[in-house]
Design a protein around this nucleic acid. Sequence first.
RNA 1: GGCAGGUUGCCCGAGUGGCCAAAGGGAGCGGUCUGUAAAACCGUCGGCAAUGCCUACGUAGGUUCGAACCCUACACCUGCCA
Length: 406
Amino acid sequence: MTGFGFTVRSRLAGRQGRTGVITTPHGDIETPAFVVVGTKATVKAVLPQSVAELGAQAVLANAYHLFLQPGPDIVDEAGGLGAFMGWAGPTFTDSGGFQVMSLGVGFKKVLAMDTAGLADDDVIAAGRTRLAKVDDDGVTFRSFLNGDVHRFTPEVSMRIQHQLGADVIFAFDECTTLLNTRRYQEASVERTHAWARRCLAAHRALTRERSHRPYQALFGVVQGAQYEDLRRQAARDLAALDVDGQRFDGYGIGGALEKANLGTIVGWVCEELPDDRPRHLLGISEPEDFFAAVEAGADTFDCVNPSRVARNGALYTRDGRFNVVTAANRRSYEPVEAGCDCYTCARYTRAYLHHLFKAKEMLAATLATIHNERFTVRLVDDIRAAIDQGRFDEFRDSFLGRYARR
RNA sequence: GGCAGGUUGCCCGAGUGGCCAAAGGGAGCGGUCUGUAAAACCGUCGGCAAUGCCUACGUAGGUUCGAACCCUACACCUGCCA
């Protein structure tokens, strides 16, 4: 009895999309679902109670960030991530694999969702301080907090994530970018696969060692950038991976995704992955991306975008995204989004949010984040309902038609 | 009343003869953000018929080829002494 499982409820005719339920020791997740990001064991600016009220089914934190601060031992002693942060529902942790890129070669637009300007790997890091350096055995990080040097390997990431105690944890992978060369992507996929095997082995041992703790599901991460052969091979290899009977409970799809081909890429991967395990698309949340990815077989998502953008004054509505900080909203005495059922829209006007942002009041971030997360969670909830009711295409067309109109 | 310092663009604040429509901040205006190094970052920021012209560094006048910068007077502000 693992306490973790996944069952498919309904399917999208002729395609790989489906709805279902993920079962975890801390509750169920109806899929497709958007998992709200709380990197440092907090959804920035928002109370856990509000996160629950806006409909979030799960929260995702980050192993690297929590390793640096406050340290996994403290989270462990506190009873695990959920107990520590006051979140009763399911939790996820990312492995630190994204930081291999964001603290290494990463720079603005590195996830660039188009292939324009493919560069050489050496060019990518030019002019930027690298805080992470990859080799075949692991990654050497320099802390952005105090400069301390830390070493992450698949085994280290697994141990940290076990101490953090999230219900779903991810294999330590190397996140690459569209700017890496094909040759680099090939080597990286191989490396990520070798790490996946080590993660499974470490996870197996840790699961036994810590059998008194709730079961943690391990997801392997499929890389391969924009290349069909690499993505399919990576997915196939992870699906087949078995270390002494230990297999992945689910799969993550990560790394460089061309926006225009996002659905296609997710489709390649999902065709190769086992149908009976959940698939999590890492770091994606734009409306058009949800539709494309769900249709192609993705079950869960997480993304910093709704909250980050909210803190910077941009709000999502069915009619597109807009910046409340703009002068046009100064006297706009209407809700952020007419008809929205979130806490913010039920009580406040655009003019008030505009004022809070202009005055640099903390409440601005709180109210804006609540709205954007609600918008995002509800959109995926609506997609799920549409699939269950057999009207996915209709819903997609009407939603995107209106969203992109402005 | 005496002595000293000060007055710069919406605000604060550099600049003490030409490279100054004037550093830097802030405000304003616009934009960006996809497994969070982000309550961050980028652009713009006197006017116009605009490879130039006009207006502008308290006010008025002067020196100079040339002044925000030097001189004179006046106005106001600040500190110290009476």
